[in-house]
Computed example of a mutant assay.
Amino acid sequence: MADETNKRALPATSWAVLGLLSFGEELSGYDLKKWSDWSLRFFYWSPSFSQIYSELKRLEKAGYASSRMVAQDTGTRDKRVYRITDEGMAAVRKWAREAPVDPPVLKHGPMLRLWLGHLLEPEQMREVLVQHQEFAEGMRRRAAADVEGAKDESAWVYPALTLKWAERYYASERDLAAGMLADLDELGGLRPRP
């Protein structure tokens, strides 16, 4: 029986996990983690295993997901797989269509360091920005590769579009870091004190 308390105000992680299940496959917690690492990490975050399993329990209590044990080859433990229920599909569809869109929350480590640049040596600040530029380019390349990998799967058309967004986002982060490096060069070692 579904627990009505668990249906009220689900956290974003619940909707993300339920969304992963909405593609129609039975997935283990391990599979869900792999899928979130493949897609969610580019634009939201990739929940940890413990978060995924906590959310799966919450979704089962709410009646939005069901699970069953699947026997494995000899020598390995049986695994639990999860499937979205009809009620869960209706709930995630309603949430996707009707919930207010939260504005992005920016928690940007390099920007925080730049803001505290008066406490760093100019070369330290440059190194932070160069590292961020390299990180952003690496993420852009991975998103582009994942877009290519998703092209042949019709069910992934919207995740592929989201990956294109991620590719463009990380290209802009790379370019913003390059712009900040140029701005630092213009400062020419000037270190204003607070």
Rank of each mutant, 00 (worst) to 15 (best):
V17M: 02
L10I: 05
Y30F: 09
F49M: 14
P103R: 09
G75E: 06
M111L: 15
L21E: 01
L56P: 00
P47T: 00
F42S: 00
L27W: 04
A91S: 07
D3T: 05
W156A: 05
M125F: 10
R141Q: 11
W165E: 09
E60I: 00
P104I: 03
L120S: 09
W165S: 06
F49Q: 10
E127C: 10
A144I: 00
R126H: 12
A144M: 00
L21A: 02
Q72F: 05
F43I: 05
A160M: 07
A166H: 02
P103E: 14
H132K: 05
S46W: 05
V17G: 00
G138E: 11
M125R: 06
L187G: 11
L32M: 08
L20N: 01
R83P: 01
I52M: 00
P104W: 03
E123Y: 07
G149C: 09
K164I: 05
W156Y: 13
F43H: 12
L59M: 06
P103F: 11
L120P: 02
A177F: 01
Q72I: 04
A65C: 08
L116A: 15
G109S: 15
P11S: 06
W45Y: 14
E98V: 08
R141C: 07
G138D: 11
A62I: 03
A145G: 09
D175H: 13
Y169G: 03
R142V: 12
E186C: 08
R97Y: 13
R140K: 14
Q124G: 13
G63N: 10
V92G: 01
W165P: 01
L20S: 04
I52P: 00
A71Q: 13
I84G: 00
A12V: 01
H118F: 15
G29F: 02
Y30H: 12
A160H: 03
E134R: 12
L59G: 02
L112S: 15
Q133R: 13
L129S: 06
H108W: 11
Y44S: 06
A12P: 07
L187Y: 15
E137W: 12
A178G: 13
